[in-house]
């Protein structure tokens, strides 16, 4: 009996310690204001003064930072441009990832395993190194422009532009798009396609009428799995983007480390989370449906 309780409580304890407590701390931080001190925010909870300390602390909290967020053009554009980057990258990922996943699912069992390994293989090297590699490719005298020069084509200025950020996002998240799509396409019953053709579909209509609608759960899973973390992505815009590239991950970093405005960084982080709750909830529902 006691052991059963321990089993049930363990995951909740984990959630409280590593999710609820940090979230509460960030929420508290977002309601504070900056001061020139270490740590650079106030009010601070002082339990040595008992109840007076708690009420003084609660009285010191305010939503002023959030009000500032809604008024400052910078935050709003960073927010919108993050959604824009993630949206464009997700659309490109769908266009590239779907044919790859579909092609993989058409191969024989042996070749499929090898291709699957090929998709997962990049995970075996550091993410940071792979993004640095893109700098080597995209920089003015990089591999891309050397290649273009060989073909007598004009060089491209890609590094430190928004285009480079999109390239980096698409590159880094492609496996997360391919894998869920491949999972649904691979287990699709071949006889369904034959039945569709038997009933008058050309191979192309059979794809649109049967394969595609049946792959929608994988498509939704892949899109959300990429979109959600891309909105808050920091490393890729920081390394590949230009000084004018606005993304929330970068904004949070700047507020926290450069401006030492911890309340603003926390408020931006929470605003980001609030926006992503809808797609995250959609993703969870989709997963529950697939599992049932």
């Amino acid at each position: 009996m006691r052991r059963t309780w321990a089993v049930i409580l363990a995951p909740y304890l984990w959630l409280v310690l590593f999710f609820a407590v940090p979230m509460a701390l960030i929420a508290k931080l977002s309601l504070s204001h900056t001061v020139l001190a270490m740590p650079p925010y106030a009010p601070r909870l002082d339990l040595s003064h008992g109840l007076d300390g708690i009420s003084a602390f609660l009285g010191g909290l305010s939503g002023a930072t959030y009000a500032r967020l809604t008024q400052d053009r910078l935050y709003i554009s960073a927010y919108l441009s993050s959604l824009g980057f993630a949206g464009v990258a997700t659309a490109i990922l769908l266009l590239i990832g779907y044919p790859i996943a579909y092609g993989m699912s058409r191969f024989g069992a042996g070749a499929r395993q090898a291709l699957l390994l090929g998709v997962i293989l990049p995970f075996w090297t550091s993410f940071l190194i792979r993004i640095y590699a893109w700098i080597a490719i995209l920089k003015p005298a990089g591999l891309l422009n050397q290649g273009l020069a060989l073909l007598h084509l004009p060089p491209l200025q890609l590094l430190n532009t928004d285009a480079a950020v999109i390239i980096g996002l698409v590159y880094a998240y492609l496996p997360f798009m391919i894998l869920p799509l491949y999972a649904v396409l691979e287990k699709q019953d071949e006889s369904l396609i034959e039945a569709a053709q038997d009933l008058g579909c050309t191979p192309l209509t059979a794809f649109w009428r049967v394969t595609f609608p049946l792959s929608l759960p994988g498509l939704a899973a892949g899109a959300l799995l990429c979109f959600i973390p891309m909105v808050g992505e920091f490393v890729i815009p920081d390394l590949l983007g230009g000084s004018k590239t606005l993304m929330l991950g970068r904004t949070i970093w700047t507020e926290f480390f450069a401006d030492r405005d911890w309340p603003a960084a926390s408020a931006v982080a929470l605003a980001l989370l609030a926006t992503l709750i809808v797609p995250i909830a959609l993703f969870q529902r989709q997963q529950a449906k697939v599992l049932s």
Partner: peptide
């Protein structure tokens, strides 16, 4: 197959 006036009932039924 799609142009043949021949239809098949599949062993697995293959219902969509």
């Amino acid at each position: 197959p799609h142009l043949r006036p021949v239809h098949m009932m599949f062993q697995s039924y293959a219902l969509f």
